[in-house]
């Protein structure tokens, strides 16, 4: 990943692969796949919950949250003693994060994208950039081999991007990482998928499932990522997603049959591979396929 102020750069050979689990729509079982995948992977792994608006992987994985860290962005602060209320900053801001009325200038940090444009152009150098909290991160040691990193966006804070980037940065790049992406195809999904080696797309064999799968396939192809599909709640004969994948030459890595017992266990927050040996075997095969794809 090319970032401007590259923090720690590890040599290529010691970097662990990054797999992401994504889905064109919510409710397909994306988190279930991510959690179970991390559970059976058989080596040291970190699961990163990037669904920062509604993080829920921790509901399945018991472990004490430790090492709470804040995520901040840089937003303008106006020194009222230097400001002459010319209003240039408010006119420049594309996001309406500033307003200047009579003798007061106001900043709305939650609208700010942190571009620094206002502070660059202020003729009186009245604007400096200060930290503004947008969310938090937690580290949970789930077991000797699994660490869960959770990013949570503060309520009322609209920009998931900075929290996603921060929680991804928290990982140890030397070991395998699995990212649980937010649902959909929005810019937060793009932030999650940046720098990923392999993407697992979770879908259902329904017309909605197919429609939303096509959207996320479009996105991962645009980003030139290698990917495959997991069909959840598979019903014999419901072949439309399978047919689409054949036509498009997309590998189907796993089919999880529809089973009320799985749905019930999931609703209770259970880990499926612990309850159903047939699923454990299936997820182990999924790991093998992902590793094979890694080469």
């Amino acid at each position: 990943m090319e970032t401007k102020d590259s923090k720690k750069v590890w040599p290529e050979e010691v970097r662990g692969p990054i797999w992401a689990v994504a889905s064109g729509k919510g409710g397909t079982g994306k988190t279930t796949v991510a959690v179970n995948l991390a559970w059976v992977v058989g080596e040291k792994v970190q699961l990163v919950d990037c669904d920062v608006e509604e993080p829920d992987a921790h509901l399945f994985l018991a472990g004490d949250a430790s090492a709470l860290r804040e995520v901040t962005t840089q937003v303008p602060w106006i020194d009222q003693s230097k400001c002459d209320f010319c209003g240039l900053c408010a006119q420049f801001c594309q996001f309406n994060a500033l307003a200047v009325v009579s003798r007061v200038s106001l900043v709305f940090p939650e609208l700010c994208h942190g571009c620094r444009g206002c502070s660059m152009l202020c003729p009186h150098q009245a604007i400096s950039m200060v930290s503004h909290r947008v969310g938090q991160m937690e580290i949970r040691e789930i077991g000797p081999r699994l660490t869960l990193l959770t990013g949570t966006l503060d309520v009322g804070s609209p920009q998931a991007g900075p929290v996603i980037s921060a929680v991804k940065e928290l990982r140890d790049p030397r070991i395998l990482t699995i990212l649980d992406a937010p649902p959909g195809t929005s810019c937060s999904v793009e932030s999650t998928l940046r720098g990923v080696n392999r993407v697992v797309l979770v879908t259902e064999p329904t017309p909605f499932g197919l429609h939303d799968l096509k959207l996320i396939v479009e996105l991962v192809r645009l980003l030139r990522l290698s990917f495959g599909v997991v069909i959840n709640r598979m019903v014999p004969g419901q072949d439309l997603v399978r047919r689409y994948c054949e036509e498009e030459d997309i590998p189907v890595w796993l089919e999880i049959p529809e089973d009320r017992r799985y749905a019930e266990a999931g609703a209770r927050g259970r880990i499926l591979v612990d309850e159903f040996p047939e699923l454990r075997a299936a997820f182990v095969r999924l790991v093998d396929q992902l590793k094979e794809a890694d080469g």
Binding site: H113, C115, G117, E190
Partner: peptide, 14 residues
């Protein structure tokens, strides 16, 4: 870069 621009206008101005 694809999908990266947030439309802030800093580059345009400078």
């Amino acid at each position: 870069r694809l999908l990266a621009c947030e439309g802030c206008g800093v580059c345009v101005r400078h």
